[in-house]
Nucleic acid binder design. Structure first.
Length: 675
DNA sequence: AAACCTCGAGCTCC
DNA sequence: CTCGAGGTTT
């Protein structure tokens, strides 16, 4: 980059950041996510660091936050409210630790780790134990007096209670005003019902609520506070930060949970990572952890640079939000005929992953977000996996966006689209819609169903598109002539395919039933029904009431199955399948052993990758032994078998106090039992 | 209300 | 493999 480019980019960044600062601090209507702001800010910081000549005093990097607005009385913080330096990696953290050790002049140091709550920084002054003044941070030196608003915060004590010893004459508690996710969601639901706009996220909502001119409005918002330290103090306080936190807690001001003290760098890092793992399950948002030197007596020694103390830093978690553009919205037709809108995004990297697609779920979701094609949107990778469109950045609209019109006809076959009153999804009414057929066939051949090796999703679709397969039965009476001619299919693979189709005829009734793709009849329900009725003939004859009488099967499933039964072509299909030699009855080997074992009646959940067994085999073993397998952990789960790379389920099990065992232990118990 | 299930995602690793 | 929305069942 040549100098002029750098200079103009710096200029551009400053303008952008200043504008966003204004929107954030003064208008309180941020138009970009914090992560995006951080990105811009760091780009600017980096460019300035590399080109110190271009730094000017008015650059946003040289000031902390924006000037307070005129609406509130200004208050000067007796002790400035500092901001924090950031580290983003273990290396960064190690460098910070090394620096601190150098300035402290010793290697033996204690550090505290506490969550960095994503809220609004606030200062609370207590005089003789009575809440006297509340203020925002402002620019760090001067903030706004929001005492009246703070009095409405439910977990902020008006008076401090001291169980032991005197309360300091003057005590300035510093903390973060925030909203719990759950309460934020409730508030948004209520606002929606009242036809009020939703808030984008808990932090913006908290910031807005705290700066309401009418405290009665603040009182209606679910604000809470976590204290993380103290500012000015007249009187005695402990010299260790961890003890100060304990004192604050004892005085009645809430502090974040699980703050820990570590002297070992590895343990410190582990604590940071632990918070990263807990992050998704917390009822409040955190954007990192704060690490502080525990001994406050060392602070003067270690010092402060600019407005950042050197004795504390923030380990910022990787961004979980990003901004991108919706290039198109596509409608997919699922196996059940449901219309599923899928947003095509301009690829964007979030937390080290490139996101290109995101589901919009249904019509209501599109309406709720009020998204248009071409819109700039905030995308979040929540809970680590599924990307989600959070909100539209309306300010970025140019007028070139256009509404997405929900189709009245199936985009694949042109049939009418129907949405039952009270249901979220719309369906294509055409039962033989090619899109549905394609999905149905690939479901039928899939692993959980008939498990036809060599006939995967791709090939199944090809056969459907070429008209070779029009129903499940066609799979078993394929015309092989055109197939052997097909590109990419050699002699060998055709032989293998023939054999695995033949083998699949031996799949148990439950799998066949599941493969049929009857609405609401998934793996579990198929098991129940197959075990109860024992044959396709019995199922076909069963009345709706008889079906509903099966434990675990209710009205809706019974209705769905009996509707399916009532279709003549389905009866013909069952006949065909029977003629073609598929198993339409259960046999003894499918029945579970009758002698009760230690497994009988247990609810077991499998998670992660097992080494010696496939998941299906493990489930089969468990079922035979009389246990039930479930897909999610709840308080009622008896046992969780944890494999490699287990995810949230293992954590949840620990939360609930459910017993967890590894594969070795599982095999051992299994063995003992079958002997 | 809680537990569980279905179904359609999207990503990663193979 | 896992998640999450939208369901159903108890």
């Amino acid at each position: 980059m040549v100098d002029t480019d750098v200079q103009s980019r710096i200029h551009e960044l400053r303008e952008l950041i200043n504008r966003y600062n204004h929107e954030y601090h003064v208008l309180q209507q941020p138009t970009i996510p914090d992560a995006e702001w951080d990105r811009l800010f760091h780009e600017l910081k980096r460019l300035e660091d590399e080109n110190p000549d271009f730094i000017t005093a008015d650059s946003p990097t040289q000031t902390v936050g924006a000037a307070p607005s005129e609406a509130f009385e200004q208050v000067r913080h007796e002790a400035p409210m500092l901001s924090l330096s950031n580290v983003f990696s273990r290396e960064g953290l190690n460098e910070w630790i090394a620096r601190v050790r150098r300035f402290a002049g010793r290697d033996e140091l204690e550090f505290t780790v506490e969550p960095k709550i994503d809220g609004v920084a606030a200062s609370l002054v207590y005089r003789n134990g009575v809440f006297d003044r509340g203020a925002t941070r402002g620019d760090g030196m001067v903030g706004e007096n929001v005492t009246a608003n703070m009095r409405t915060i439910r977990d902020l004590p008006r008076t401090l209670t001291s169980p032991n010893g005197p309360i300091p004459e003057v005590l300035e508690v510093r903390g973060e005003v925030y909203m719990r996710r759950s309460e934020f969601d409730l508030m948004n639901e209520a606002r929606e019902e009242a036809a009020l706009p939703r808030f984008a996220n808990p932090r913006n909502a908290a910031s807005g609520a705290l700066r309401q001119l009418d405290a009665r409005i603040t009182a209606e918002r679910p604000l809470r506070i976590f204290a993380y330290g103290i500012g000015m103090v007249v009187g005695q306080i402990p010299f260790k930060h961890s003890d100060t936190l304990a004192l604050i807690r004892a005085l009645g001001v809430p502090t974040p949970p699980d703050t820990g003290v570590y002297s070992d760098a590895d343990e410190l890092w582990a604590a940071c990572e632990a918070w990263l793992e807990w992050r998704a399950d917390l009822d409040y948002e955190i954007d990192g952890v704060v690490i502080k030197v525990n001994d406050t007596r060392l602070y003067p020694e270690i010092g402060t640079v600019a407005r950042e103390p050197r004795w504390a830093t923030a380990f910022k978690f990787p961004a979980s939000q990003g901004v991108t553009v919706i290039e198109d919205i596509e409608i997919n037709v699922g196996r059940t005929g449901s219309l599923n809108p899928l947003a095509h995004l301009k690829p964007v990297e979030i937390g080290g992953v490139t996101i290109r697609r995101a589901t919009l779920h249904n019509q209501d979701e599109i309406r709720r977000l009020a998204v248009k094609i071409g819109d700039t949107v905030v995308v979040e990778r929540a809970g680590d996996v599924i990307p989600k469109i959070v909100s539209v950045v309306e300010e970025n609209r140019t007028g070139d966006e256009h509404d997405f019109i929900w189709p009245e006809h199936c985009p694949v076959c042109g049939s009418t689209v129907e949405r039952v009153e009270g249901e979220a999804l719309s369906y294509c009414v055409n039962a033989s819609c090619p899109a549905q057929l394609r999905e149905q066939i690939s479901h039928f051949v899939s692993r959980g169903a008939m498990d036809i090796e060599g006939l995967g999703t791709k090939l199944a679709r090809r056969f459907v598109d070429d008209g070779l397969i029009r129903s499940f039965a066609d799979i078993y009476r394929l015309n092989w002539e055109p197939i052997v001619e097909m590109e990419g299919l050699g002699e060998k693979s055709v032989e293998n395919l023939k054999r695995s189709i033949e083998n699949s005829k031996q799949r148990p009734l439950a799998r066949l039933l599941f493969g049929l793709g009857i609405r609401h009849v998934g793996q579990q329900t198929a098991d129940l029904i197959a075990a109860h009725f024992g044959s396709t003939d019995a199922i076909a004859k069963a009345t709706q009431d008889e079906i509903a009488a099966v434990p675990g099967v209710g009205k809706v499933i019974a209705q769905s199955l009996s509707d399916w039964n009532a279709e003549e072509r389905n009866q013909l299909l069952l006949n065909d399948l029977k003629q073609l030699g598929l198993r339409t009855e259960i046999d003894e080997s499918e029945r579970q052993s009758t002698t009760p074992t230690e497994w009988t009646g247990l609810t077991v959940v499998l998670t992660g990758r097992l080494e010696t067994l496939s998941r299906g085999d493990a489930e089969g073993l468990l079922k035979k032994a009389g246990a039930r397998t479930s897909s999610s952990v709840s308080r009622k789960t008896d046992l969780v078998i944890v494999g490699d790379d287990a995810g949230s389920k293992a954590d949840k099990a620990r939360d609930y106090g459910v017993e967890t065992i590894d594969e070795q232990e599982f095999l051992r118990r299994m063995k003992m039992d079958t002997d």
